[in-house]
Design a protein around this nucleic acid. Structure first.
Lengths: 348, 348
DNA sequence: CTGAAAGCGCTTACAG
DNA sequence: CTGAAAGCGCTTACAG
């Protein structure tokens, strides 16, 4: 392959000048730059990332860590993040934790990332104290998206999970439901996502405000997946005296709940109302009421924030800084979407 | 950060020996290796990928190109691929084409990838002749997954798309349907996925074998997405004299079709039967009949094939070579899953 | 089994 | 605005 020397020779300049011209540095005359670009094109020159990274000390790469790329929210986020990174010329190094402790350890606890990427995005990744210590030692810029654990010094983009749960629960209360169940994330996971804790809190708060004592038998924990929703709902039904409504912590769980209800001979919403969170692509197909959250927008915003210090870009005049109060999370809005899966309970 | 010299000094050996010991090369005595590993651990040493790549000429990275990470099939494939790459110590560089011509060009037509990765996996990526030429010049090993375009010299892992479509169509024929519509991929895309062409072919073949002349008005093209399925079905209904069954080229289109039918006041399967392809996670939730294909398995297999020449690994004794006939695709099995969305047509 | 030394292909002060 | 030269941190023949 052609190297920088080849281009330099053809353009009649030094390699230093080629390097500067190709990267668009301002200290190159227009005529020289033209010659260099022409030579590079003619030779089909592409810079060697390894050499450039070694010499320049920058990797041009961002690590994106997600729990499971196959879940709707994370896939949507990654797509949006990739789009922005691509435009900015960054590579996206994907880490799909997938519940594999070994991967967690490699990503979060070794110095592996330090020399591999310029910045880190953690999507909904809960951290142990030791993880936080290790991340701090890396001294890399980072951003967290969706709850997970707050990393000191890193911006955070998210929604108001407590508020989301209150809105969903209140919607059911407003319809007249009193026995409202909640199905949510894994109880035994010591790294429990704060997402599910926050959503449960909102659920309980809304109930209490309505004068209803939260009933532990109506609160079932499983996993944030379709089959998790199915299992949780089956457990719920097994306990007898079924609820008239279910608030699922995400749409995928809600879809699982709908299956389990159908299999149990219960109709949605006539027998049981169901509401989720996300506005998954399939929510409208299933007529699922939900609280919509802007997944792609969170990804885009988090990426822009991440790239900002790297590029040292100034904010355009008149624009709002990303963070009103440095250190406080950027909260994006959500909204209730009422479809066919929620209705008043049958007259008692 | 600590460099290789630091480790060498602490272990009392040369950097060459550290390099060899850390990479597990056999030409290092057990005692030396132990000392080196201990020193590396004590110093929390992590090799610099840039330096290692520049010196060694290998990147330890695989490019994975997918049309859209948010579509079920591609997300599932990427998750499986990432798992194998992770275990093998490779980085996964994600390229989500997302219909962006600019990204296509950068990935497929520049020498960008050449110095960036050791191997390429193209998932369902159709290629123009110029793309093929450019890929050939890269002289990198690669593999294609799912149809797309065949790249000379690259192994290919896929299913039998014609056969899948025949099975789906035959299932509908066996139920007694005669007016069977097909909704499938984008017609105007000059890079039309071969997937959708193959599936249409199977559909037509099955009809012809049953003595039915394919009716062009029952063949609607849209996009391989939920909303694509909805639009295609709306178009189908607009044409009047609706079919008694729809074969959708993928489950996501089938789900879109179910929505459109419901919105038009038609019941599935009483008025119209629907069958898709994939066995999407949600197919069972929706009671969608489908042809299941092993997405993760295709990803795993393609990755193993890709890594094989890189590592120069010999196949374990007794194992079957990946490719029976070099150059011929590896075809993975599929199977019909009958759920609630298909039934005999109503008596005329 | 181990080491000294060259070299991978760039970028970056430094000097002009 | 441009160039000569050092250096980024490894790996790899080569020699022993």
């Amino acid at each position: 392959m052609t190297r920088i020397d080849d281009v330099a020779r053809l353009a009649g300049v030094s390699t230093a000048t080629v390097s500067r011209a190709l990267r668009g540095l301002p200290t190159v005359s227009a005529a020289t730059r033209r010659r260099v670009l022409a030579a590079a094109e003619q030779l089909e020159y592409a810079v060697s990332p390894s050499a450039s990274r070694l010499a320049g000390g920058r990797t041009g790469t961002v690590a994106v860590v997600v729990p499971r790329i196959t879940r709707w929210f994370f896939g949507t986020v990654v797509e949006a993040v990739e789009d922005i990174l691509q435009q900015a010329g960054y590579d996206l190094l994907l880490y799909n934790l997938g519940g594999r402790e070994q991967v967690r350890a490699r990503v979060l606890r070794t110095a592996d990332l330090h020399k591999r990427v310029d910045a880190i995005m953690l999507v909904a990744t809960p951290l142990r104290p030791t993880d936080l210590t290790a991340l701090g030692r890396l001294k890399l810029p980072g951003v967290t998206l969706s709850s997970g654990t707050v990393v000191p010094g890193w911006p955070c983009v998210r929604i108001d999970d407590v508020g989301v749960a209150r809105t969903a629960t209140r919607h059911l209360l407003d319809l007249g439901h009193r026995r409202i169940a909640h199905i949510t994330g894994d109880p035994d996971d010591e790294l429990a996502y704060t997402t599910h804790l926050d959503r449960r809190r909102g659920y309980r708060e809304a109930l209490c405000e309505a004068g209803i004592e939260p009933d532990p038998s109506l609160d079932v924990e499983s996993q944030f997946t379709i089959s998790g929703g199915t299992r949780a709902t089956e457990e719920l039904l097994r306990r007898g005296d079924p609820p008239t409504a279910i608030f699922a912590a995400c749409d995928e769980m809600a879809m699982g709940a709908m299956t389990a209800l159908r299999d149990a001979g219960l109709r949605v919403p006539q027998d049981v109302s169901v509401i989720g969170v996300d506005d998954h692509d399939l929510a409208s197909v299933l007529g699922l009421s939900t609280i919509a959250q802007p997944a792609a927008e969170q990804g885009r915003l988090a990426t822009r924030i991440l790239l900002d210090p790297l590029h040292g870009r100034a904010l355009p005049p008149g624009s709002t800084p990303y963070l009103d109060t440095p250190g406080s999370p950027v909260i994006l809005p959500t909204r209730l979407i009422v479809r066919e899966s929620t209705a008043p309970p049958r007259a008692h």
